[in-house]
């Protein structure tokens, strides 16, 4: 039985929140675009400025240049309105994002379906797990959380609070305990409790710390001992405020833990999250969710069109 996570469209608030969160993002870009093309021809200088606006959104040099070039293609020296440029910009960005916009598919035949959540420190793993737990629980699934962040002070308490909110039991050990051992126990317990989904939290780690990355590799190995197919999904949580380093994060976490999908958090701030476009182009990893607030239901399914239109500053 395959079924995808409900995308929340039945929740009237989510779109408003998403566009609310992205509005600031888009506001600055759209004003930049309006400023630069309101009353002029789309010439080389204008396209360069457009490229700059994309760089400011963290798309990175290569992707910004590519998108800017696509916008310029066939429109050189034509008079164009801001509206038109925005539409083309959105279309170009959407073209890159469309292939990666994929919901997280939970295979009901896997019991429990093990989701490992990884990322650098402070990217929002624990909060994302709390939101995911609430989402799954609301769909009537039995969710168990594993407090795999045995390093950060009070990480376990933080997860327990989220667990209580979502009505999901939390399996934890004393701080400083071996995370891989905890993952092993948690999977066995979740199985014994006939849970549908096991969400495994991990300690934040910078991707250039070989020892910590090795620890993560060990967690994956140990999970496989219990269930050869586990983890069934490995979600990398990316902070929208992070710049070009996010590319390195995707690269390394994929190498070590086999990332299967991405979650981008903190899009309710001023950060543009444009690095997601660069990541989509380079790694083609599915983007499942975006975090747009601190509330338990502030997690939206990633929609390429909305994200692209928001980046281009088109209001719905």
């Amino acid at each position: 039985m395959n079924d995808s996570v409900k995308d929340g469209t039945n929740n009237p608030g989510w779109l408003r929140r998403l566009s609310g969160g992205l509005r600031r993002t888009s506001a600055s870009i759209s004003s930049a675009i309006t400023d630069l093309v309101a009353k002029r021809k789309l010439d080389a200088a204008t396209i360069e400025e457009l490229e700059d606006a994309l760089i400011r959104a963290d798309l990175g040099l290569a992707t910004a240049a590519k998108v800017a070039a696509a916008i310029g293609a066939g429109r050189h020296d034509r008079d164009v309105s801001g509206e038109e440029v925005r539409a083309v910009l959105a279309a170009e960005v959407e073209k890159i994002l469309l292939p990666v916009a994929a919901p997280l598919v939970v295979d009901g035949a896997k019991k429990p379906f093990v989701i490992l959540v990884v990322g650098v420190n402070g990217s929002g793993k624990t909060t994302t797990i709390g939101k995911l737990a609430a989402k799954f629980a609301a769909e009537g699934r039995k969710v168990v959380l594993a407090a795999g962040d045995t390093f950060r002070a009070a990480a376990v308490e933080q997860l327990k609070i989220w667990g209580a909110r979502a009505g999901a039991p939390v399996i934890a050990r004393a701080p400083g305990a071996d995370a891989a051992g905890l993952a092993f126990d948690a999977l066995e317990q979740a199985r014994a409790q006939a849970a549908d989904i096991l969400l495994v939290d991990t300690a934040g780690r910078l991707q250039n710390k070989a020892a910590l990355m090795e620890e993560l590799a060990k967690m994956v190995r140990v999970l496989r001992k219990v269930d050869a197919g586990a983890p069934h999904a490995v979600l990398l949580v990316l902070d929208a405020t992070v710049g070009q380093n996010a590319l390195g994060q995707v690269e390394e976490f994929s190498r070590i833990a086999g990332v299967t999908g991405l979650v981008m958090t903190k899009l309710d701030g001023t950060a543009r999250g444009g690095i997601l476009v660069a990541i989509a182009e380079k790694y083609r990893l599915p983007v499942h969710f975006i975090g747009v607030g601190e509330g338990i239901d502030d997690l939206a399914t990633f929609a390429a069109r909305d994200f692209a239109r928001a980046i281009a500053g088109i209001k719905d």
Binding site: A57, D58, G122, D239, T241, V242, G243, Q244, G269, I275
Partner: peptide, 15 residues
């Protein structure tokens, strides 16, 4: 502030 911050770091610091 995070040393890994992207372009938004300036807005953050400025505001």
């Amino acid at each position: 502030a995070d040393a890994l911050s992207g372009q938004d770091a300036v807005n953050l610091a400025r505001s």
